[in-house]
Amino acid sequence: MPVETYGWDDDLTDLTRYSAQPHDGLPFWVPRIQTQQVRCGEHFEAIRAPVTEAERAHQILGSHSGPVLANFYTKIWYFLLEPGLVTPQAWTVRGTRLMRAGALIAIPPASITYGRDVRWVVLPEQGHTDPHALQQALEGHAPAPVTPRRSRRSRTDTRPTPTSPC
């Protein structure tokens, strides 16, 4: 029975072998085995922020934070946002930057959540960060809580009902 090995002579052009599978619950662009470069703008937008501001923003956002990458050596964090929601003209937070479309970001396997190289702070399975909330958090402000919009039906249900005279 042949044993499959992952040595230096592997064909690295076959990314399906190295990428997340649908049953993993992760996007396909998250690698399974080794860190790979993925272009911004297609699957995500990336906001680059210095570690101090990024850690503070991450604490402010709490469970409302989407995918986040951190790199110990560069002291840079990347907040990954849903593509197409932010334009360079609209992103005005000092000291941070919206990475241009086509810029390469190192994406580690989902299992890399600690260590000195690039690692996940929040995995992509957690959803997306709201760009406005991230902007507020990076500026040091707690974002306004998201209140669900009331449906038309719920408004009519809250009207007082007429009472009949006794």
Results as ranks from 00 to 15, higher is better:
residue 109 P to W: 13
residue 9 D to P: 03
residue 67 P to C: 03
residue 147 T to A: 03
residue 22 P to I: 01
residue 25 G to S: 08
residue 90 A to Y: 03
residue 109 P to Q: 11
residue 9 D to A: 12
residue 38 V to R: 14
residue 104 L to D: 00
residue 68 V to L: 12
residue 118 V to Y: 09
residue 106 A to P: 08
residue 42 E to P: 07
residue 116 R to I: 08
residue 14 D to K: 11
residue 24 D to T: 12
residue 82 E to R: 02
residue 87 T to Q: 03
residue 156 T to A: 10
residue 87 T to Y: 07
residue 20 A to N: 15
residue 115 G to S: 09
residue 165 P to M: 01
residue 125 E to T: 02
residue 104 L to N: 07
residue 52 T to F: 04
residue 11 D to S: 03
residue 90 A to Q: 15
residue 101 A to F: 07
residue 12 L to N: 15
residue 154 S to V: 00
residue 84 G to E: 03
residue 32 R to V: 00
residue 58 H to T: 06
residue 134 L to D: 13
residue 102 G to K: 10
residue 80 L to D: 03
residue 21 Q to S: 08
residue 146 V to L: 06
residue 162 P to C: 10
residue 96 T to D: 14
residue 100 R to S: 13
residue 155 R to Y: 12
residue 50 P to E: 00
residue 24 D to C: 03
residue 149 R to V: 08
residue 31 P to H: 14
residue 49 A to K: 10
residue 145 P to M: 13
residue 48 R to K: 15
residue 83 P to S: 10
residue 71 N to P: 06
residue 41 G to H: 12
residue 79 F to E: 14
residue 114 Y to L: 15
residue 77 W to T: 02
residue 116 R to W: 14
residue 146 V to Y: 05
residue 22 P to C: 06
residue 42 E to S: 09
residue 124 P to F: 07
residue 125 E to N: 09
residue 23 H to F: 14
residue 64 H to F: 09
residue 40 C to W: 09
residue 2 P to L: 01
residue 19 S to N: 14
residue 76 I to S: 02
residue 14 D to H: 06
residue 108 P to K: 12
residue 61 L to F: 03
residue 139 E to F: 05
residue 45 E to S: 08
residue 89 Q to P: 07
residue 73 Y to D: 01
residue 70 A to V: 00
residue 83 P to K: 04
residue 108 P to S: 08
residue 8 W to T: 14
residue 5 T to D: 10
residue 86 V to I: 12
residue 96 T to Q: 02
residue 152 R to I: 09
residue 63 S to P: 02
residue 9 D to Y: 04
residue 41 G to T: 02
residue 55 E to T: 00
residue 84 G to Q: 09
residue 166 C to K: 10
residue 10 D to H: 12
residue 164 S to L: 15
residue 44 F to N: 04
residue 123 L to Q: 04
residue 52 T to S: 06
residue 111 S to C: 08
residue 88 P to V: 05
residue 25 G to R: 07
residue 81 L to V: 12
residue 115 G to V: 04
residue 85 L to Y: 11
residue 136 Q to C: 08
residue 45 E to Q: 08
residue 112 I to G: 03
residue 122 V to S: 02
residue 105 I to A: 00
residue 150 R to T: 06
residue 84 G to L: 15
residue 133 A to Q: 11
residue 153 R to A: 14
residue 61 L to N: 12
residue 139 E to G: 01
residue 158 T to Q: 12
residue 103 A to I: 01
residue 52 T to E: 13
residue 52 T to I: 05
residue 23 H to W: 14
residue 59 Q to R: 13
residue 142 A to T: 11
residue 56 R to Y: 08
residue 118 V to R: 11
residue 44 F to Y: 07
residue 101 A to M: 08
residue 23 H to C: 12
residue 86 V to A: 12
residue 126 Q to D: 09
residue 122 V to F: 10
residue 54 A to E: 05
residue 160 P to A: 10
residue 47 I to C: 13
residue 29 W to I: 00
residue 40 C to L: 05
residue 2 P to I: 01
residue 16 T to A: 03
residue 101 A to L: 09
residue 37 Q to A: 07
residue 150 R to Q: 12
residue 26 L to I: 05
